[in-house]
């Protein structure tokens, strides 16, 4: 194969990978179910991707989830969510084969100190805005995150709310 064709192949591979990643995430956003989760934020800095806000959810704490007896640290878990008032809350913790039809679940992993990580713990904001948002959150503001979950339990952050209003950055 000539080097020209190889260049085309590499370019094609890169485009397919990038678009594949975008497509995968977009599909979740387009087809998933919207759930509103209550949060507690912190603000660090990730050199790779600029400022972001670390989000802790009520459902991040293992102690707040019923039915966790069989799971250990490092296990993949599916937390069943149900709307309780304004927010969605965890009602059960299941293994993959225990998920029933119609269940709204979010996939997570049990980490140290009884924390469940769902892959929705970071919200990236423009450089310097992290502190500003944190300041707003520091008061008695109610912070919530709209997460979209697909039928396999994959979640993506869609919107950040402070006191019921969407944060536009």
């Amino acid at each position: 194969m000539s080097r020209k064709n190889i260049t085309f192949c590499i370019a094609g591979l890169w485009l397919v990978l990038a678009l594949g990643l975008i497509g995968y995430k977009q599909r979740i956003l387009a087809t998933g179910i919207k759930v509103l989760l209550e949060t507690v934020p912190v603000d660090p800095r990730d050199f790779l991707r600029g400022d972001y806000v670390i989000l802790r959810y009520k459902i991040s704490s293992l102690s707040s989830i019923p039915g966790k007896s069989n799971f250990n640290r490092g296990d993949r878990v599916y937390v069943k969510l149900e709307p309780v008032g304004e927010y969605w809350e965890a009602v059960a913790m299941k293994a993959k084969n225990e998920i029933e039809r119609g269940d709204v679940v979010i996939k997570g992993k049990i980490r140290r100190r009884g924390v469940v990580e769902y892959g929705i713990e970071s919200y990236f904001v423009p450089e310097g805005k992290g502190r500003e948002i944190e300041k707003n959150m520091a008061g008695r503001s109610k912070v919530a995150v709209e997460v979209i979950v697909d039928k396999h339990g994959n979640g993506i952050i869609n919107k950040l709310f402070i006191d019921g209003r969407v944060v536009h950055l």
Binding site: R49, G119, S122, F124, I156
Partner: peptide, 8 residues
């Protein structure tokens, strides 16, 4: 970054 994939 756009899809908020966390540091982990």
């Amino acid at each position: 970054q756009i899809y908020n994939i966390p540091s982990s």
